[in-house]
Design a protein around this nucleic acid. Structure first.
Lengths: 205, 205
DNA sequence: CACCAACCATACATTGACGAATGTAAAAGT
DNA sequence: ACTTTTACATTCGTCAATGTATGGTTGGTG
């Protein structure tokens, strides 16, 4: 095959990753061959093995396109508002996360990671999920402790417990929505649930 | 090989299913061969193909050993107490479910179904999860509507919304625990979370 | 302008899982 | 006691997927 421009080569690489997302989501990671991915992108396995070492490497590259550390979500909500209104900061961070998840690429990759792949090669999706869970739970706990210090939390509710409740609720919502995103909008439903759950946390109903 | 008595044959069948549970949980469904399952049970693939048609059939048989319809959980909690105390009925049903999940067989099979298998043959774990979710959410809504009619719910909280909150929280807890059950006890943690979440739902804090 | 390496296709070797066919020895039936 | 069926073990053919090696064309760089 003829050599391509650097831009064209990068484009085919992206096309391969796009194809991987679609086929992985449709048929599951284990049941899709590199041949199927290549054909779906209009290429052959040669292209795949040029750009990626193997299936696990391609999978990792697919994940790297959607890395969103929690810090980015915090930065998106503005800044100094979190100092005196931590509960509102949590809500806005959640909204920010929901908005990202509605972008097809983010939704697809997370759905694949959580519902359409097993342990595989040197990639352990469960370990990744654990990391995500602990990170978000820790951040929630920080904000809720701040809220407790400011007297914005019910006195019979510890920030630790509130963080676990909220984290479990968010995790369940996340899983449910990723399972079939056509059933509801995570932005609407998520807003509703987070708002009300935080309302239950607040002092004086 | 020599023929075994009916009891012995049934025992080897159970042994094969036990082995399947362990190997599936350790290596994932797609990455384990029937050979590995058979060897782990001290047999060969011949035994597997005698008792089961193929991998999907074995998988289905494994699932059939842990079917627990929601109705059983309700029956376990006693009976007439649910009429005037629906919130307590919910709590007891959850406790009952948590207790079951701590039995190794139930825990393993659910962990496999949710975290260690993809779509596979004529088996769609996501569809099963959807069934489970809708069934439990519907039951929760029924009880919470009953609680609302009895004036046991906060007036600013619709039973519909409460059901979604609780269902998401339970689902998140479920997933988190199945991901690594060594981190905490679902019976303790589940009791704590359900109790407090229901407490937040109740009228007059 | 020349030449090399990038970029991808093609062909080939290897692996390993499945499933069916066959073997067989003891339990069940008669 | 004789036959039949059961409950496996063993072997083998097939096929799909992987990984590698090779070839061919052209963009990029000196």
């Amino acid at each position: 095959m003829a050599r391509k421009t650097k831009a064209e080569a990068a484009a085919t690489r992206e096309a391969l990753l796009d194809a991987a997302e679609e086929v992985f989501l449709e048929k599951g990671v284990a049941r899709t061959s590199l041949e199927q991915i290549a054909r779906h992108a209009g290429m052959t396995r040669g292209a795949v093995y040029w750009h990626f070492k193997n299936k696990a490497d391609l999978f990792q590259a697919m994940l790297n396109r959607v890395r969103m550390p929690f810090q980015e979500l915090v930065e998106e909500i503005g800044g100094p508002s979190l100092a005196d209104a931590p509960l509102e900061a949590i809500r806005l961070a959640c909204v920010s996360g929901f908005a990202r998840l509605e972008r097809p690429r983010y939704r697809r990759v997370h759905a694949i990671l959580i519902h359409h792949c097993e342990v595989f090669g040197d990639i352990d999706p469960l370990a990744m999920q654990n990391e995500m869970a602990e990170e978000s739970c820790g951040a929630l706990r920080d904000y809720l402790e701040s809220a407790a210090r400011l007297g914005q939390l019910r006195e019979d509710l510890s920030p630790e417990l509130a963080a676990r409740l909220l984290q479990s609720m968010l995790g369940g919502l996340f899983h449910d929505w990723l399972r079939n995103h056509e059933q509801f909008s995570i932005l609407e439903q998520g807003n509703l649930l987070v708002e009300n759950q935080l309302g239950l946390f607040r002092r004086q109903a």
